[in-house]
C-alpha cells in the first residue's frame, strides 16, 4: 500500500489548520490601514467643522481663539492705542505716573508729538 490513507490526509489537514497563520508583514498591515483611513467616510459633524475652518482661513481661526470677530476688533484697537501711547508719550501719561507712583518721570522727546502725527507735520 503506497497511497496515503484517508486518515493520513485528514491528519495533514488538521496539522495545517492548527499551525499558526503566517504573520503579515508590518509593511502590509500599514499599507492596508493607510488605505482604510484614506477611504474612510468622515462623520457629518467633522465635515462641517473642517469645511468651516477651510472657508474662514487663518483670520477666522484667530477670531475664534479670541472669542469672536467683535472681540478680535477690540483687541486690535487696544494694541494700536498702546503703540501710539508708547510713541508719543502724551502729557497725561507722565501726570498719571506722578500721581500714582509719586516719582518724577522724565518725558523724552524721541518722536514727534501726537499733535504732529495728527496734523501730519
Amino acid at each position: 500500500m503506497t497511497m496515503p490513507e484517508r486518515d493520513e490526509i485528514e491528519e495533514m489537514f488538521a496539522m495545517a489548520r492548527a499551525a499558526p497563520r503566517p504573520a503579515p508583514s508590518t509593511a502590509l498591515m500599514a499599507r492596508v490601514l493607510a488605505d482604510a483611513l484614506a477611504h474612510q467616510p468622515r462623520p457629518a459633524g467633522a465635515d462641517a467643522s473642517v469645511a468651516g475652518r477651510a472657508r474662514g482661513g487663518w483670520l477666522s481661526a484667530l477670531a475664534a481663539a479670541f472669542g469672536g470677530a467683535g472681540a478680535l476688533a477690540g483687541v486690535g484697537g487696544a494694541a494700536l492705542a498702546g503703540v501710539l501711547i508708547g510713541i508719543v508719550q502724551p502729557a497725561p501719561v507722565t501726570r498719571l505716573a506722578d500721581a500714582v507712583l509719586g516719582v518724577q518721570v522724565a518725558s523724552v522727546q524721541l518722536m514727534p508729538t501726537a499733535d504732529s502725527l495728527v496734523a501730519g507735520e
Partner: peptide, 19 residues
C-alpha cells in the same frame, strides 16, 4: 468604519488580513 470610527478600521485590518 463607514460611520467614521478609526478604531473599527484597525480592528478589521488586524482581524481580516492574516486570514
Amino acid at each position: 468604519y463607514a460611520a467614521g470610527e478609526p478604531a473599527a478600521a484597525r480592528e478589521l485590518t488586524a482581524r481580516l488580513v492574516p486570514r
